[in-house]
Amino acid sequence: MNIEQARFNMIEQQIRPWEVLDPQVLDLLFVVKREDFVPAAYRNLAFADMEIPLGEGQVMLAPRVEARLLQELAVRKSDRILEIGTGSGYMAALLAARGEHVVSLEVRPALADAARANLQRAGVANVSVETADGSRGWPQRAPFDVIVVSGAVAEIPQELLKQLRVGGRLAAVVGSAPVMEAQLVTCVADGVFNTVNLFETVVPTLDGAAAKPGFAF
């Protein structure tokens, strides 16, 4: 497989048609090597328009979904970022390339270890992967400028919204299959939030979100 041709095709045939037109985001997809975050068994599918299995029932989201969320968050170099659900570490690497620092929470220890190894090999130094349940966010490092939920939730929990600073943005896919929608929530004042529906999609439920009685997600 011609890796660079496959990367180019992914960007031009999958990502641009999904209204990802920010040149900084598109350039970043050439710089952060997606194939370095894909399990070896699926390396030939690194650029396919699909979710890639990571083990333990978890997946990498499709490239177009990750790219669109990254664009809509409009990450700035001074932003402090929280990611819920590290997975392979790829989204954390993209966020880190645009922001100041990323705290990424992964409840499954084996995935957290793999993500740390992937990020280290890729030379990404401004991501902290914590083995933790992200259901309550990470209040000890709040507030955050950007929060990304890398999995679907039934609704956005108040605990996460409270960890956004004024002007901060949160992206999540909200709903239950087959009806889900990616949303961008902006904190416009203390306790005041503006929500924009971005696009319809269906992605796996955030790990653990469906398993806990009374869970806020």
Rank of each mutant, 00 (worst) to 15 (best):
I11P: 03
E12K: 13
Q13F: 05
Q14H: 11
I15S: 07
I15A: 09
I15P: 09
W18N: 15
V20H: 07
D22P: 12
L26P: 08
L28R: 13
Y42W: 14
R43S: 09
A46G: 13
D49V: 02
M50Y: 00
L54N: 15
L54Q: 09
G57F: 10
Q58A: 10
A62W: 04
R64K: 15
A67P: 14
L69G: 10
S78N: 11
S78T: 13
R80N: 08
I81G: 05
E83P: 09
I84T: 08
T86Y: 05
T86V: 09
G87W: 07
M91Y: 10
A92C: 07
L95M: 13
L95T: 06
A96M: 08
A96L: 09
A97M: 06
E100F: 10
E100T: 09
H101Y: 13
H101N: 08
V102K: 07
V103H: 14
L105S: 11
V107I: 15
L111T: 03
L111I: 12
D113G: 06
R116C: 00
N118D: 04
R121W: 03
A122R: 12
G123F: 13
V127M: 04
V129R: 04
V129N: 02
E130L: 15
G137K: 13
W138M: 12
R141N: 11
P143E: 00
P143Q: 06
D145I: 06
I147E: 02
G151E: 02
A152R: 12
V153C: 13
V153F: 00
E155C: 11
E159Q: 13
L160V: 13
L161S: 11
K162N: 14
K162R: 12
L164C: 06
R169I: 00
A172H: 02
S176V: 15
A177V: 05
V179P: 00
M180V: 09
C187R: 15
V188R: 14
T201R: 02
T201M: 02
G208R: 03
A209W: 04
P213E: 09
F217V: 04
